[in-house]
Design a protein around this nucleic acid. Structure first.
Lengths: 114, 114
DNA sequence: ATAAATAGCAACCTCCGGGTTGCATATTAG
DNA sequence: CTAATATGCAACCCGGAGGTTGCTATTTAT
């Protein structure tokens, strides 16, 4: 009985936070836009969207709150850039869950057959 | 200029849906509980939680709406089991974003140095 | 020096997510 | 048959998410 339940609540909270940050189409497109590597200003990120600059700003702050994005002031503009670390953490988490699933299925198969 | 923006809106919608389903701590713990491979009834999943059975039911339906979980009636109880496919899809998506980031950084580095 | 560009702040609105309670229904146990 | 179990359905509440508008402040261009 590997009743790990390996996620301590703190880690689970953080995962939920990052998942929530990625749960909006607008924010996914912002992530996609910033995955190009170059820091972008708010107006740059607003162009090509049908939303207001303030809406985009709020979305960027949500991403920042999850650690997915960092902001630095450059002259009169705020430049946002991606931080891929939380994405990698999520990927690792999803891998762990899938792995747990596979191992569980393997054990159940043995139990049924053997 | 690889302006792929590879996510068609439909795919992005689906990703947002699954991310949203995983954006709640309660639902993450349900996924964790179901990752054990054995189908669980609603009351089983409610035991050990401080929430109401109806609350858990709603969460399960959210997970089902994202395709993360399937339900089948067995006698008087509803048995829920995990479907890892959407999880793998998300993992692949996160990998693509990270890869795009890495390649972009590499290109920018060449641009600066060369 | 003035005007245009960029962004921050605050108030406001609407809608939905998470949660509860209450009651009805179906299934199994005794 | 009757009671306990397991679930479904609907109404309701509350707070926060997503979005807008209006105004102000700072930086840059002309």
């Amino acid at each position: 009985m590997s009743r790990c339940n390996l996620e301590h609540p703190a880690r689970r909270r953080q995962h939920a936070l990052v998942f929530a940050a990625l749960s909006d189409e607008t924010r996914l497109s912002l992530v996609s836009a910033l995955a190009g590597g170059r820091p972008r200003s708010i107006t740059q990120l607003t162009d090509g969207s049908r939303l207001t600059r303030q809406a985009i700003t709020k979305h960027l702050h949500v991403l920042a709150g999850a650690g997915l994005v960092r902001c630095s002031r450059r002259g009169r503009e705020s430049r946002f850039e991606l931080d891929p670390q939380p994405l990698q953490e999520l990927r690792a988490y999803l891998e762990r869950v899938s792995e747990q699933w596979d191992q569980a299925l393997a054990r159940l198969k043995v139990f049924v057959e053997g």
